[in-house]
């Protein structure tokens, strides 16, 4: 196994990245406002798809941070589930506030990522992927064993409140969309700024040649660890949002196929921009909705074919097809 397992995947969009770019805040803000505006216009089923795309994109945003260093985690469902169950525990304790829930999901997942990071930062390539998978499956096993948490049945989450305001049933979905958009806005800006910083830019050097990075006096382990914690935190935020959107948590959230779906969306998206995961997640949810709608007995054929097509014909991910990305 070479030291640069994901070089080609990340390199394609990397060449498309603008070298001198403006502040990311404005375009991301415009994006978030557009999504919220869309919430007024779209039918209910599309609103659900938007909500799903947003929490999924948060996890994929974290995967992209890792991918910049050439690392792919097949265990992101671990942090997704930790974030979701953090909301679950809060809900059981009667804490339903949106901000508290999101922060709890982020903190719980980030803290676990910090601890496991000391171990995982030593691993690269397929071993990094497999060890993260093993940890997620251990959590899955623990949750299945926990009868007080409903085992595989999981348990329901109380409706979310916003600083004391409890939206009625008709506006509940829209409130969740505003919440998800604001959280995604903050996450995207934070990641965009981080990737511009020294530590963020170090990632590509780590991916290309770790030994050179060490010779230059930078700590590869530290760089990888920081990215790992960021990815874990974002996955925890995604899980917290998912728990609120779905209204239910269960161990399948930690199962390896869920991690596989996140990586699927990452491949579909490409890593060229912080917008990419949002586009990729939206397309993924739409493909899924169309596939299950038109062939409920064989939707995986459609999903699998879409993935194959993306890998074969759009190696840089969907974002590389965007006119702006191509121009620069």
């Amino acid at each position: 196994m070479s030291a640069a397992p994901s070089a080609t995947l990340a390199a394609a969009p990397a060449s498309a990245r603008p070298t001198r770019s403006r502040s990311p805040v404005l375009p991301i803000t415009i994006g978030a406002v557009l999504v919220i505006a869309a919430g007024f216009a779209v039918p209910a089923w599309l609103l659900t798809i938007l909500l799903f795309a947003l929490f999924r994109a948060m996890v994929v945003l974290g995967l992209i941070v890792l991918l910049r260093a050439g690392l792919v985690s097949f265990g992101q469902a671990l942090y997704f589930a930790v974030g979701a169950y953090a909301v679950g525990f809060l809900s059981r304790a009667g804490v339903n506030d949106a901000l508290v829930r999101v922060l709890a999901g982020a903190l719980a997942a980030g803290a676990l990522g910090l601890v496991l990071g000391f171990l995982l930062r030593r691993y690269r390539g397929i071993f990094f992927a497999m060890l993260s998978l093993a940890f997620s499956m251990i959590l899955y096993g623990l949750l299945v064993k926990s009868e007080s948490l409903g085992s595989t049945d999981g348990f329901a989450i109380h409706a979310t409140t916003y600083a004391g305001y409890a939206p009625d049933r008709s506006s509940e979905r829209f409130a969740l969309l505003v919440l998800s958009s604001v959280v995604a806005w903050a996450g995207a800006i934070a990641v965009a700024l981080y990737l511009r910083g020294t530590l963020g830019r170090l990632a590509e050097a780590v991916r290309d040649n770790e030994i050179r990075v060490e010779y230059l006096g930078a700590s590869v382990a530290m760089a990888v660890h920081v990215k790992y914690v960021i990815a874990a935190t974002l996955a925890g935020v995604g899980g917290a949002l998912a728990a609120m959107v779905i209204g239910h948590v269960d161990p399948a959230m930690a199962y390896w196929t869920n991690s596989g779906e996140f990586v699927f969306v990452m491949i579909l998206s490409g890593s060229g921009s912080v917008f990419a995961p949002f586009l990729g997640a939206l397309v993924f949810e739409l493909i899924h909705a169309v596939a299950t709608h038109y062939s409920p007995g064989a939707w995986r054929i459609i999903l699998g074919s879409a993935l194959l097509a993306a890998i074969m014909f759009v190696p840089g991910g969907l974002w590389s097809l965007m006119p702006k990305a191509r121009r620069s």
Binding site: W45, T48, F52, D153, G154, A242, I246, G247, H248, V249, D250, A252, M253, Y255, N258, A289, T292, H293
Partner: peptide
């Protein structure tokens, strides 16, 4: 997954 079915039912 249960979460997925909840979505299918909503849709």
């Amino acid at each position: 997954a249960p979460a997925r079915i909840a979505t299918e039912v909503r849709s």
